[in-house]
Design a protein around this nucleic acid. Structure first.
Length: 475
RNA sequence: GGUCCCAUCGUCUAAUGGUUAGGACACCACCCUUUCACGGUGGUAAUAUGGGUUCGAAUCCCGUUGGGAUCACCA
């Protein structure tokens, strides 16, 4: 049988990291087995619907290259792929389930149902409405009385099922709530819609967060009552913010969109989250999506929760940035150059920046001195190792300026050789020329690249102007 | 609270009865060097705890502790 997995997000806002990881595992399970990856939008809760959220889902999946084989925009043999468009289908199946004895009509208000429960005595909600004879219940429904359809749990003993990650799970039927399957507004709850859809769409592997482990027996009951076979279950551990809290939208934790905005590359984010809860069994850590589909296996999925570590993602992002071609990096950097003065040599800037940044956003802080030299203290000219200080700078800067004025080949290598020769001629150390020059050009203790690289970035004219300004400042 | 799940360096993880408990990030040191970074070398650092089983336990079993999930007309 062909493997079919589905990503079934609800359009309630941006895409968070845990969600994207689940989608990734679903995609990989499908693609590692030559199967289909299906996108289904679960919008049965109209109160939580957020405008534009569906587009975010599409864009995110496209950005990372996880292409779906069937979905709302793409069609397929099992549509529609938006649950709100399948509304009548659920009602049909819910009523059928009532006939089969797996569910019943309930006329309780929400409050009444809540009161029935007794948490201290640990009594699960067992709906009194299930005692209403079916014929009578149908009459009340026909008469227009508001109702919901609740699952009926009559079984006793232990429910057992196998999970591909967690192994055999055993839960007592008494632990199962008789939850609402079809709401009074006619929409199904997740508990019902996911079963009906997964069956109808012939999903073979259900991948979801492990918070569903304990409610899975309820779903299995529905599969049984319909006489359907249940899919393979792949429950995956949570992605945590720290040891106590999971990553969540409500806390405003970083979403995929946020990370991209912070200068992380989609490929790096995807690579990093693949490794949160899964490992290849080798020491390789850098994987493209393509490579992942080749080495992924369910068996190597982990059972314990994983903390999202932005530091390691940052390192990995740096790896991806360094691996970029010079042209590609320049393209990605361009938006960050928007306010650069005209004299700046952008290609040279990119070249200098690429090995030095870990996120694209670093460009902003690394290049702040380019627009204007900050107001710095002349103490900056002091460097013990380079044997320089303000006096040395005062002494050498005019000579550097004079030398550079006649220099025509304005490349890093040429400038470096030239200034090295100058140092020799003056009988001073290289550092006594280069260090003061770098400070004069940047006004910063640390800069991307050395004196000559900065000179190339600034161009000859601006370089000379800045040296002049520095000489004036030193007095 | 009931039930279920989880437990190896700070973090992500490897080791599926026999390893000096391995790798990666981070951190520290050194090297390279025109500052910074990249790169290279080395280092600090873990089997939560108590019992079993076994010649031998991170690994299997039981208890304890700690953490998480779930108990919605949310998904």
């Amino acid at each position: 049988m062909k493997v079919r997995t589905r990503f079934a997000p609800s359009p309630t806002g941006y895409m968070h990291i845990g969600n994207l990881r689940t989608a990734l595992y679903e995609y990989l399970i499908a693609k590692a087995n030559d199967g289909d990856f299906i996108l289904r939008i679960e919008d049965t809760d109209q109160k939580r619907y957020v405008e534009g959220a569906t587009e975010i889902i599409y864009n995110t999946l496209k950005t990372v290259g996880m292409n779906w084989d069937e979905g709302p925009d793409k069609g397929g043999n099992y549509g529609p792929y938006i649950q709100s468009e399948r509304k009548s289908l659920y009602a049909e199946y819910a009523h059928k389930l009532v006939e089969l004895g797996g569910a019943h009509y309930c006329f309780c208000s929400k409050n009444e149902a809540d009161e029935e429960k007794n948490e201290e005595l640990n009594i699960k909600f067992k709906d009194p409405c299930k005692l209403i004879p079916l014929e009578e219940a149908k009459k009340r429904v026909a008469a227009g009385e508001p109702y919901v359809i609740r699952q009926t749990v009559n079984k006793k003993g232990k429910s057992k099922y196998h999970d591909e990650v967690y192994g055999d799970i055993e839960i007592d039927y008494d632990e199962l709530d008789e939850g609402v399957l079809l709401k009074s507004d006619g929409f199904p709850t997740y508990n019902f819609a996911n079963v009906v859809d997964d069956h109808l769409m012939q999903i073979t592997h259900v991948v979801r967060g492990n918070e569903y482990i304990s409610s899975t027996p309820k779903y299995n009951l529905i599969y049984e009552d319909f006489g359907w076979e249940h899919p393979h279950y792949v429950h995956v551990p949570q992605v945590m913010k720290d040891a106590q809290h999971k990553l969540s939208k409500r806390n405003g934790d970083a979403s995929f969109q946020d990370l991209v905005a912070k200068g992380y590359l989609p490929e790096a984010i995807l690579n990093y989250i693949a490794l949160l809860g899964w490992n290849p069994g080798t020491e390789q850590e850098i994987f493209s999506l393509e490579e992942l589909t080749k080495v992924f296996s369910i068996e190597r999925l982990n059972r314990s929760p994983a903390i999202f570590d932005i530091t390691k993602l940052t390192w990995m992002n740096g790896c991806y940035i360094r691996a970029l071609s010079a042209e590609k990096f320049h393209q990605l950097a361009l938006p960050y150059y928007r306010d650069m003065p005209a004299y700046v040599n952008l290609e040279a800037l990119s070249q200098t920046l690429q090995p030095r940044i870990e996120t694209l956003k670093d460009i902003e802080t690394q290049t702040d001195f380019i627009k204007a030299v900050p107001d710095y203290s002349v103490d900056l000219y002091f460097n013990k190792k380079m044997k320089t200080d303000a006096d040395i700078a005062r002494q050498n800067l005019p000579a550097i300026k004079e030398a550079l004025e006649t220099q025509s080949e304005w490349t890093n290598q040429a400038l470096f050789d030239y200034l090295k020769a100058l140092a020799e001629k003056l009988g001073v150390k290289n550092g006594q020329i280069l260090y003061p020059l770098r400070i004069a050009l940047s006004g910063k203790e640390t800069t991307p690249g050395g004196a000559t690289e900065i000179a190339v970035i600034l161009g000859k004219e601006e370089t000379l102007r800045r040296i002049e300004a520095a000489i004036a400042k030193l007095g």
